[in-house]
Nucleic acid binder design. Structure first.
Lengths: 205, 205
DNA sequence: CGATAACGCAACCAGGAGTTGCAATGGAGT
DNA sequence: ACTCCATTGCAACTCCTGGTTGCGTTATCG
């Protein structure tokens, strides 16, 4: 201490190091989440897997929960691209298939599992869950409105209703049943949603 | 060992007591499950709520998990009645509404939440999850087959497929979105499933 | 009414989460 | 290349809570 001396403004903060370890820890967290689940998640375990010492984690994240939030928020950022092929059928097929593609990866499963686990008690995670679906639906809504504009679907078709009908069977199988979820599942979901919409059952309340 | 003595066969085992406490503990477990979730479930908490000492619980259930399984298995037993009104529309409406009725009760939510929580790591609970849906679908299948027989639905309609389509949006809203789930939700799910089936999109693979 | 089994209680053990102080390391600027 | 200082590693330590054990107490059944 004493004098910081007049010259040296502020020396090298050495901030480049934390980035790598941060990435490693976040990745390790997701991995642990997939393997052991949120309940059994231990900072020790994450540290070990990341090749880091638990002290480091405790110093960089005030609480283990913050770590989880942080880890999941990353994947959250990876958004599904919204197609615009000119035909509803194709748009929806692409949409459903990419949804399934992202959700059947280990990382996707980790997000889904954790979001459904007891971690929902964390307000931040609960908010994330709502935001995730609201956001995806809002982003995908144009697919429906464009189809309506083109006359491919009834004018009264509600985008949110439609997308819920499309997504529900996919998530249902992912979460509840042990059935495999693949392209066939996607295509069937599309067919069902389209049939329902064309029958006029997917209007706003 | 020794002699059990001639007279006194086997004295009063005093077995009538455990029943009441068992019920109290099981109820307390469900309550704790709804309020605090599986991860935060503590034997101490359950004991306190049940007006019992934790030792008693540890003595009656080898592990806390066994307690959870036991508690949930109770609700599991409460099955949904399968209607047979003579018209698919009515059958399905009744079915969907009673499903929603049971799942929106505190107890129903407890079952659902726990079955989706980290508790799924328990093989017994995972098995229960599969069994639950398989069983319900099997029991409800006649509603579909009868409708087919009556000519109300296409002959190729697959019961499991149909029931998945019916249940999925309900569970989706229950689990993922914050929307209220009521009769309107039930009726809409019925309309969607019927429309999809009549369009021939719910056939076996 | 008395014996026996189940419950209540209190003290105890174990393990893991989270903390702290100090030594080692590596990156940034000169 | 060299030096400085933030950041990480490391080890020991505390504390809390899940789970256990032995014994006194109570209630149920014959």
């Amino acid at each position: 201490m004493e004098s910081v001396t007049s010259s040296t403004a502020h020396r090298g903060p050495a901030v480049g190091r934390g980035a790598k370890m941060r990435a490693a820890v976040l990745a390790a967290t997701v991995a642990e989440l997939t393997e052991t689940g949120y309940a059994a998640l231990t900072v020790e375990g994450v540290a070990q897997r990341a090749g880091v010492h638990k002290t480091t984690i405790y110093r960089n994240w005030k609480t283990p929960d913050a770590l989880v939030i942080d880890a999941l928020t990353g994947h959250f950022a990876t958004d599904i691209p919204i197609p615009d092929t000119g035909a509803v059928d194709d748009d929806l097929r692409v949409l459903a298939r990419s949804l399934i593609a992202t959700m059947t990866t280990p990382a996707g499963r980790a997000l889904l599992t954790t979001v459904l686990s007891d971690a929902v008690r964390l307000p931040a995670l609960a908010a994330m869950k709502s935001a995730l679906f609201e956001d995806r639906f809002r982003r995908a809504a144009p697919v429906v409105t464009r189809a309506v504009a083109r006359g491919e679907l009834p004018a009264a078709t509600d985008p949110a209703e439609f997308l819920t009908t499309l997504a529900a069977p996919i998530y249902f199988r992912l979460v509840f049943t042990a059935e495999p979820v693949d392209e066939a599942t996607a295509d069937r979901a599309v067919a069902v949603a389209l049939a329902a919409a064309r029958a006029g059952t997917l209007t706003a309340l």
